[in-house]
Structure formats: C-alpha cells, structure tokens
Design a protein around this nucleic acid. Sequence first.
DNA 1: CTCTCCCT
Length: 816
Amino acid sequence: MATLPIEAVLPALKETLGTTENAVLVAAPGAGKTTRVPLALFEEPWLCGKKIVMLEPRRLAARAAAAFMARQLGESVGETVGYRVRMDTRVGPKTRIEVITEGVLTRMLQNDPALEEVGLVIFDEFHERNLHGDLGLALCLQSQALLREELRILVMSATLEAETVAELLGDAPVLSSAGRAFPVQTRFLESRAEGRIEPIVVQTIKQALAEESGDLLVFLPGTREIRRVESQLQAQGVGGQVKIVPLHGALSREAQDAAIAPSTPEVRKVVLATSIAETSLTVEGVRVVIDSGLMRVPRFSPRTGMSRLETVTVSRPSAEQRRGRAGRVAPGVCYRLWTEHEDKRLPMRSTPEILEADLAPLALELAVWGVHDPTELAWLDAPPAAAFAQARELLCQLGALTEDGTLTAHGKRMAEFGLHPRLAHLVLQAVPLQLGSLACELAAVLNERDFLPGQDADLRLRVEALRAGQADRGMIAEANRWKRALGVEAEEKGDLDYCGLLLAFAHPDRIAQRRGNGRFLLRNGRGAMFLDAQPLSFVPYLVAAELDDQGTESRIFLAAHVEESQLREHFQGQIETERIIEWDGGAKAVRARRRERLGSLLLKETTLQDPDADEVLGALLRGIAVEGLDLLPWTKAAKQLQERLTFMHQHDLSWPDVTRTALTDTLAEWLAPHLYGLKNREDLQRLQLVGILESMLSYAQRRELDECAPTHLTVPSGSRIPIDYSDLDAPVLAVRLQEMFGLQETPRIAHGRVPLTLHLLSPAQRPVQVTRDLASFWQNAYFEVKKDLKGRYPKHHWPDDPNLATPTHRAKPRGS
DNA sequence: CTCTCCCT
C-alpha cells in the first residue's frame, strides 16, 4: 500500500491523544484520514479497551469507510470494524471501531449520556457543519465536562475553521496534514458575467471540450438550470460528439450510478450536476470542472414554518471542494464563471445548517437531554433564538412539551422514533384510531423525497404506489419497521380517505380551505394554490404536505383531502366560535352572525337570532361613523336647524356644537338614545332629526333660538322669507327688491349683532345686488339698478324714492 | 416548473 500523506501526522496524533482529551486534525480531502486514523488509534492504551466511534455525514460514506477498513484488516464488516446507520447496523461483540452517521450519535447519547463503552469520538468532515454534527459535538462536550472527563474527542476537518473548533474544545492542539490531490489550474472570467448563467456555461463547455482532454463536471445550482443547459447543448449539436449526463438527487439510484461511472475511453462525458457531486458522490475520470459559482439552499422561515429554496453564491470552501474534483486522477483544470476580482469576495464559509434550518428536531433532542436553554451548551454557532422559540412553540402544539417547556411522555416517545417531530406525532396519534399502519406508510412517504415528482399532488397516489411495491425498497422497509415498532403490522390497511386527517396531525397549520380556481387559504392565513387543475383543486378542504413558500401564494406540491367532519371530530378543541355583530357596508345594515373558525378558516357562518341590543347599537354607531352622517335623513328643515344651531354655537359656546365633525364625534351621546331597535339604513331614514337636534337644547335655548336665529323674516311686503344660515358668518336673506321698499336699514338677527346679507332679486328672482348696508344701497346703487330694471321689466313700478314706495310681493305688476 | 442529507 502506498504511503498516504496522513501517515506523517499519525505519531503526533497518538501522542497528543495520549496526553490530552481533545484534538483537531486538519487534512485535505484525499489525505486518507477517514480510514487511516481509526485504524491507527484503536489499539492505543488510553482507550482502555473502549470503542472508537467515527461520525460520517452520509450513510454511503459510513458503510464505505467501514468496508475499506475491514478489508485492510483482512476481515469482514461487523468484526473489528462495524457500522451503524439508519435502518442498517453491522456491529458484533468484537467491534472496536463503529462508523456511524451523525444522527446515530445523538440517539446513542440520549440512551447513554456517559457513552460508557466509547473511548474516542471522531467527527469526520466536520467542516460540513451539519445540524446533527453540531448537536452531537455540543452534547459530547457536555457529557465530557460532567460525566466522562477522560472521553476523547477528535474533530477532523478539511478547512481552516479548525482554529475556532480548537477553541471550543478548550484550546485543543491542531495537527495538520497535506493533501494528496494533483494540481488544478484555475481559470477565471475576464469580465463579470451578466444575466443568465446558462449561455456562459454552454460556451465554456464548448471551449473546454476544444481546449482540454478528459471528462467534464459542471456544477449548476439546480435541475432547472441542468435541463436548460442540456437542451442548449443539444440544440448546438454538442450532444452528438459527447455524452451529456444530468446528475442530481431526484434521479433514481441507477441513473446516479450511471452518471458517476467512468466513461469508455472513446466517449467523452459532460456531467451536469448539482452540489450533490461536491461531497456526496464522486464522479470518476473528471479532469475538467466548470463551476457556475451558484448553489440552491433551503432556507427555513420560522414565521411561516416552511422552507424556501434560494439560489446563493458558493462559499470559498465549496468552490475549493468543487475545484478539487478536477485533480483526483491527474492534473486538472477548473473554469470558474466569475472574475478574479469577484473571487476575492467569496464568503469565507457556508452558512452552518443550524443557523438556517427548522430547529424543531433539535429542540426536541435538547428537551430530552434536559436542556431548556440552548446557551447551557457550548456551540460554534448557537441556535438562533427566533427559530428556536418557534420550534418550542410547535413542540407545545404537538403536545411534546408542556406550556412551561417540560418534556411530556408523548414528547419522549416522539423523540425515540427518529422522525421529524411532526411525523412522529402523526404516527402516535394514529395508533389509537386504528390507523397506525396507514400512518407508518404516510410517514415513510413524507420522510423521503417525493418519488412521483410533477405528478398529481395527491398523497394517496404515493401510499397506493408504496402498497403496490412501486416505491423505493428503503421506503417500504422504513414503513414496515415502524409498523413493527408500534405493533400494528397486522392491522388492516387503513382507508386511504384518512390520509388528510393524519397529515393534519403533522401539519395543523397547513389545513387549507378552497377559495375557488385551484386556490386555497391556509389555516395560518397564507395563500396556496395548484399550478394546474387536478382533482384536489376542487375539494373543499385539504392539508398541504409540501409547499414552496415563494411569493404571496405558495405552490402546493403534495397534499391530501380532508373532510370537514374529520376536522370537527379531531380538532374540536381548536375550533373557535365567535359572535360577530358588525356593520355591513355593502348591505348598509348591522349583521349579527355566529362564526366557527379554525385559525383563518371560516368553517361555518349563521345568522344570530337574538343579538344583544347594546352590541347592535354599537355596530350601528360604528357604521354611521364609517359611512358618514349622510346615512341620516337630513330634511331641509333638519339641515336648516343644524345650520342655525351652528350659527348660535359660533356666537355662544354654551350652545351645543352640531357641526358635522362634532356630530360624528359624539354620535354615542346625541344619537344613540334614539337608535334602540334600529339596524339598517331604512330604519335610520325614519328618524326625526329635527326633534332629535331640538332635544339637545334646554327649554330656554329653544325659545332663544327662535328669537336670535329665526327661520324666517317678515319683510315689508308681508312675505315670510326663509333665512339661509349655510354661510355661518353671513346669513343670507334672498328677497325680491320690490318687497323691501320702505325698509331703510338692513334687518339684523342675534339681538341685533349680525346684519343679514341681502341678496336683492329682480322680479324674476335673478340676483341684482348683494349688500349688508340697505340704507347705502337705496341712496347710491339703487339708481343705477333702477335704470337697468326699468329697461328689462318696464311694466313694473320702479319708484324714484324707494322709501316711500309700497312694497309688493307680486311678481307681476298690478293691473297687468 | 423542486437543493440536499440524516435519525436505537
């Protein structure tokens, strides 16, 4: 066996762990640390015969590492070296090295916080900073501090974030080892790429095929871009010369295996991959990497409880990892589709999962561990407070925690399931309903990537396919394992009509009601919809399992029908009944209704038979305030009375203020007493506003009103002419000039304080003159006016001395 | 017009 670069640091590593508990080992990919380190250490005396457990981020990697090490010892897996991953365990009584996946460590710690049988925990590929890795390290560190001070912890990482890890491990020594990869030449863009990435990718692929030999690995953010690049390459005839192979997580295992297998020497291969090829899968025979510099990441929103996919710039470590994929078999080339200037500004690290993930599973693990406040543990990055609080709230809703945050028996059982708390709750709720078997099938379907993507969103199709053996074998095995754990294997297959109800246990916030047109309203108030019409578009209620959380209306990818009667039976305690008595602006009436709500969903609305009179009155008053005073019957008389009172108020503030503003502000005082039993505009139209306004006055004020602000004035002709109070500062008397003959002075009101403004009119009621000084008019302007009137109304009498003339109210001259 | 892993 060739000497690996890692061999150089092994003696120092043995010595370090012989004297101190914690250490950090930095080694580039390909240095051989994953297989060499456990084999070098498992017989060290400081282990005292205890085991080494090593964490891998992926099941595949864990099994592969165990198999490789077993071969090195000339044994098979399960002897000295074993592995323990989800759904698959191979360890025996002799096993000294257990390669496990990150989540398994959490379960081991929860069962045995002191890890009595373990002498050393190795965190491999720790730079990936997965949620379970971070949690496992935090728990291990506390176990070491409180229960097992001689427990060794070794963190292995490919990047220089080692220093911060070393600090977290109590200033642990850092050892490093060089990598073994071949050199890779990096080529940047000359100028910044604008617009879509696909044309530049296509152009670079063609350039690399011409300039370089060997297979190409192209990193794209997602399947959409992969499809576009593929079709553009085909359109440009590239597909004829080379084999174009997509590679992403939604592909079947066979398609993935075909994509990563080495190509035959005569056919060149262009692999179009997502970040799956960055760490999880190794594509054989690659000499050229083309990196779009983009990746899609899920971002969880504590506000909506959903994840959304975002396209982001890759971090520097990611870009380095991608570049390294070109140097595994020979010196290689990496085309980076950004400029050298932009390269300097790449983020120094990817965002650790704990900062952006759904923290409900973590919060449940911490509750089982006995930690209320995550700051009691040591973290590289503590769980963000908002997301953690949201997670605790969800756990309360699911009954895993009590109000004060203590773990319930139900919560403890949920944690033991190794399922997301929502799904564990679904399964546990189903058992007493004799739906345990269906629940296990549903949980298996929901726990994995959708195997019928793009098809009809109905979950029942997936469960049917699973029952027919058309799902992934692992998924079927998963369902069966839970059935055994619950003792429900023998249970009759639950009716598929219960899928929606069970899903509602997991996602009570995603119960949705039809709004029409394939659009739905979620219980949490958000909108959701199907892109194309399908049977589920027309059901009154459904529960959404998967949504995209983009924009104002989320797209529904996966859902199940639920009956209103099922919701009523199982969510009775969450249905709120409210009595609503409110003004209906459309009908212009008070509506009294009884509503049953499930969150934002209105399940039922009925008319309330005997609404409380005071509440009706309140709603009517609010209606009038909103609609305005025009809702009331303002007759001419009422309007004039309001103007007269306003006139009085202006001169004496002891009078009520009845301006529109004041009346609107004081509806409850002046109007409310007259509204009992009224409920709509028609009722209001029958009100007697004159009487209502008058009732605001004292007896003395009523008498004074007629004196000071009379409705009419009797002019010399004997006519009673109405006074117009609409201009508060200058009440107007509009009267034919002829009726005023003989009156010398301007008539006054308000105890003589306010002269009326006279609008003097022609016999045909046309305005002739406006004056507040009648005496002056007679003496001056009258003579000019007279000439004009004589011309136009020659048959009328236009005297030279108006003071001596007889006033007349007749429009036609006498005797005509 | 959907990233990717993982849980006795």
